Computed example of a mutant assay.
Amino acid sequence: MLHHVELWVPDLDRAVVSWGWLLGSLGWEPYQEWPAGRSWRLGETYLVVERSPALRPGAGHDRMRPGLNHLAFRAPGRGAVDALADQAPAHGWTPLFPERHPYAGGPGHYAVYLEDADGFEAEVVAG
């Protein structure tokens, strides 16, 4: 089982809006809060977004370069995936592959693919 994931973000407030909405919509609950970060928890697993003081300046996250491409989450069903797809833009997410939604991952894989303002991708799959 995954223990936790930590995403270093360039703008904590922006990440809290987008990730907080997405994770809350999927049943994750706020877990920890400190000046440079926030976390949400589901069961024993938690996800952190942090504007670390050790963050190096640079070009930012690029999901197409080596490293993290995306995080994939389960939704309770197709209705939840569709609701997330509809509501995502109001919460800082851009739908990826909208012309192929909800089967961008192939036939039988019902999901929405989202990208936040900092280039992080989240996939939400109907469970």
Rank of each mutant, 00 (worst) to 15 (best):
R100V: 10
D82M: 02
V5D: 11
L71R: 00
L26E: 13
D11Y: 05
R63V: 01
V124E: 07
V81M: 09
M64V: 01
E33K: 09
G108C: 02
V17I: 12
P53N: 02
H61Q: 05
P35C: 06
D62I: 04
P30M: 07
W21H: 08
P53V: 00
R63M: 03
A104H: 08
V49W: 04
E121F: 00
G77L: 06
L22K: 05
D62L: 02
P53T: 07
G119L: 02
E123Y: 00
V5A: 14
E123A: 13
A88Q: 06
Q32S: 09
S52W: 02
F97N: 14
P102V: 12
V48W: 08
P107R: 15
H70A: 04
Y31L: 11
T45Q: 12
F73D: 09
P102H: 08
R56G: 08
G119H: 04
R63F: 03
D62R: 04
A80Q: 14
E50P: 01
P89N: 07
Y113V: 10
R51M: 03
V17S: 03
A117I: 10
G119P: 00
R51Q: 06
P95G: 12
P10S: 11
H4D: 07
V17C: 03
E33M: 13
M64E: 03
R100G: 10
G127Q: 05
A126N: 04
T45V: 14
E29Q: 15
Y110V: 15
R56T: 13
